[in-house]
Design a protein around this nucleic acid. Structure first.
Lengths: 120, 120
DNA sequence: AACAATACTGACGTTTTTGTCACTATAAAC
DNA sequence: GTTTATAGTGACAAAAACGTCAGTATTGTT
């Protein structure tokens, strides 16, 4: 979705922010890690069954590169890897919350709209 | 970027929200219309010179379909069309604001990080 | 030696998104 | 009747995003 901040200098904060969190599943991943932390890959997959593993890993890598999440590998068998939000990642909480809140409003709005049109 | 809410029933508010505002330039458009309203197409283009016109129009159409913005055509020559946020669209202000705020934080974070690595 | 569970990676093809180019409509002004 | 400005549309190409499949590594258990 996005041009990354390493490839381009952004002038506005929103563009910079979107270059990091604009990926298709990134808000979803951040949302998971706000619910519960740390999470293993397999646990994130349970939260987000619609995302295929390949994609999930790609988005996790990008978030890690941008220092939004941290990745800790435990040298055990079977392998264990834990993901959690970094300090700057945790600051995304208001973004996720405001999106969820607006989604609630919009759902309500859609419902009212549907009611109206079915009455007419 | 997104699967639209007309094609799928979303269970979480964030997924519903992202199905509407997840498009590449949508936050940018909404941001413009929060700065100043109403705006004509040509004025939005001045705010967002990186978006080509075709794309801008497509995103405007989608936002209009979802009732996030309204489009008013004045029957004059040359044509005049004004866009502005609807009631539900205006409620996106906290989303845009929180994204901008986080962007500021992240820019600061990047700068600190760059300072550190250049010292080492 | 085969199998198990977890967390991956690489190659590749498909789909979606984005961009480009050329074109249209309008009515007034020249 | 040609030009002007604004706001578009259609067809298509290019690029980016996404998904699928098969495969790797690890080492303890059977």
């Amino acid at each position: 979705m996005v041009i990354h901040h390493k490839e381009k200098t952004f002038f506005t904060s929103k563009d910079l922010a979107l270059s990091v969190i604009g990926g298709r599943w990134k808000i979803a991943i951040i949302w998971c890690l706000l619910q519960q932390s740390p999470l293993r890959l397999s646990e994130i997959q349970k939260y987000l069954p619609d995302v295929n593993q390949r994609m999930l890993i790609r988005q996790l890598r990008e978030l890690e590169e941008d220092k939004i999440i941290t990745r800790v590998v435990y040298p055990v068998v079977p392998p264990k890897v834990e993901y959690q939000l970094s300090e700057i990642g945790l600051l995304l909480e208001p973004v996720v919350t405001s999106i969820c809140d607006w989604g609630d409003n919009f759902r309500e709005f859609l419902k009212e709209n549907a009611d109206k049109t079915s009455v007419e």
